[in-house]
Design a protein around this nucleic acid. Structure first.
Lengths: 340, 340
DNA sequence: TATTAACACGAAAACGTTTGCGAGACACTT
DNA sequence: AAGTGTCTCGCAAACGTTTTCGTGTTAATA
């Protein structure tokens, strides 16, 4: 077991001072050519690499980004991580991932843990519990300390920071409009309770599309699930009782399950019932029939968030530029669960 | 913007030394009750938290675990991360995730980056490129430095370290046996090239099941995909030419797509064709018909790997215990794509 | 009263870097 | 001979902790 070599070792071996070694490895003008070459050769030979922790302590820069998400099994968040990782890595940053499991307490604990020097900035999406409680003190503490924060997807207006979201309302609006234009008049909407920002926005888009086209929407055809978690019973009961000719779902799991129930009750897709889901993930692509979906561009969202964060981190000037909210456009991916 | 408070600040404010503050906050016996109470109260009031970086430098313990995986979009890896995160978090560790993107170079870069003090140990699954090149020097360098490493799923015998895998051969064996026992005699196997350990093992299990039951397997019914990536053309061509009454696939995406092609050619599932896929993810659960799957228990694998790693990290004794390879048992989850 | 023990605290080194500044050696100018 | 300048390099502080050891004070013992 060969231990890691440090500046001190090199210095002792070459009989120079630690500072000389440090400067030589940085190609400082202060050091003579001879000495530099000798030191650099030695360092290369022994494969010297500076200790990240020590450098972090000295520079007060960790080159780490903390990402806190409610859940990693949802495809959307996975793609976001992927985007963050890509952008971060290309700029020399590592990504520390923490899961809040939709729990307020875990979110707070994770933030506090990372805020004590482990990271240079946060990228996060609020847990559902946090959105319910509307308690954002942990976010404020972090920003108060001058740690940059970028919120994505599940955001709040109560915290001043950079944000990146998709235009959820627009996504729902366009999906609804498409179905209405095809003559569907009894669209069912399976969404989530209003405490989740995405729920509210998507419902708004659904209603606005109806209003704009002068078509009444059916209040009783709107199902608000308590959480994003799948509860087959609720959806099955709703769909067996409802009278509908199309379904729009807040995520692809609900949509695929909705299709299943519809088929079980003898309806043909897309002729009798058209189905559209949010989140264009694997399920949508490989469902049978394949699912028309509103793509949320998670990877792009992750990249964007990372870019905004790193810009903030590396901004030396004291005159802080104002916080931005980037709004990404959703895309309707047409497949076989709707008529084209 | 209130800056983070340090021991030094507390010491100056309370007119004691830094060491006294440090000890008082650790409830050391050395410090008098009065002083401790005063210091603790002050620390709580100003919400003092030790700087992780400084503690890491001092203790040579980062409380970070590095996880390097080839890909995060595959459901299996996602569940592994989830398991690692859970176990790590419960023991006070954070998880740094890096993606190799199946690239040897990115794997090496990520490892080197993290190995310079950022983490206390690695959990990783080899990239396909690494498995092809059979170049494991970056792993050896890390273990040589005394950094613990746990390999999971895609492992190699060339590196001495802890490992956790599932019995891939057994999974394939049982799936094959089940189908053979149901009278299927023309099973198609869609797997991957042998350079991926999972490909080899699963193919072995497939063949062994045939041998054990004295039934010949059809060499021409085995398709070895170049990578784990979906290439619809190859699978479609294979399945339209082949004569088969069942399909076993190396992952669920292939399986779901296989079902689709089978259905397109007029075959009924599961009556005419039974289908079984590896990886019991969302796709399997929500496919139509739902997919019988060999569960790989990714979350358990992650938890196990994390537990082994942390045990290694926190092992103080010098007499190192021998490396272990834990073999998890796969589980056959029966659903509607096979006859039950 | 002198000795010792217990107690409470501080000084300082250490972890591995970075960096401003001072200083010795040498050559050159006046 | 004294002053000035240039090159190299080392000293030391700093980042924020932890921990060993030393020391001054007080109380208990002989």
């Amino acid at each position: 077991m060969k231990r890691k070599i440090t500046l001190k070792h090199i210095a002792k071996e070459l009989e120079v001072s630690i500072s000389t070694v440090s400067k030589a490895l940085k190609n400082s003008e202060e050091i003579s050519r001879d000495t530099k070459e000798k030191i650099q050769a030695f360092a290369k030979l022994y494969n010297y690499r500076p200790n990240n922790i020590a450098v972090s302590l000295k520079n007060k820069r960790t080159k780490n980004i903390g990402v806190i998400i409610p859940d990693i099994v949802h495809h959307f968040f996975t793609t976001v991580i992927s985007g963050v990782e890509k952008e971060a890595n290309s700029k020399g940053y590592n990504v520390i991932v923490c899961l809040s499991d939709e729990s307020f307490d875990k979110e707070v604990i994770n933030m506090e843990m990372l805020a004590n020097g482990s990271i240079d900035g946060f990228i996060m999406s609020l847990s559902s519990e946090t959105q319910q409680k509307k308690d954002y003190n942990h976010l404020k503490e972090v920003t108060d300390q001058g740690i940059p924060l970028v919120l994505f997807d599940r955001v709040t207006q109560s915290v001043d920071c950079d944000k990146v979201i998709i235009d959820d309302q627009l996504g729902a609006y366009e999906a609804t409009k498409k179905l209405l234009n095809q003559g569907k008049r009894k669209i069912a909407l399976i969404t989530v309770d209003d405490y989740l920002s995405v729920g509210t926005e998507r419902t708004k888009g659904f209603i606005r599309a109806h209003k704009d086209l002068g078509i009444p929407y059916l209040e009783k055809n709107i199902l608000k699930m308590p959480t994003m978690e799948m509860e087959e019973g609720i959806i099955r009961e709703f769909l067996t009782k409802a009278d509908y000719d199309a379904i729009i779902c807040v995520n692809e799991i609900f949509a695929v399950f909705g299709m299943k129930v519809a088929k079980e009750t003898g309806k043909k897709i897309p002729q009798d019932v058209s189905v559209i889901g949010f989140t264009d993930g694997l399920l949508s692509k490989y469902a049978n029939p394949s699912l028309t979906a509103i793509a949320q561009h998670g990877e792009l969202m992750g990249e964007t968030a990372a870019r905004m964060l790193i810009k903030r981190i590396e901004d030396e000037s004291d005159d802080e530029f104002p916080f931005q909210t980037k709004i990404l456009q959703p895309t309707l991916i047409e497949r076989d669960s709707t008529i084209n």
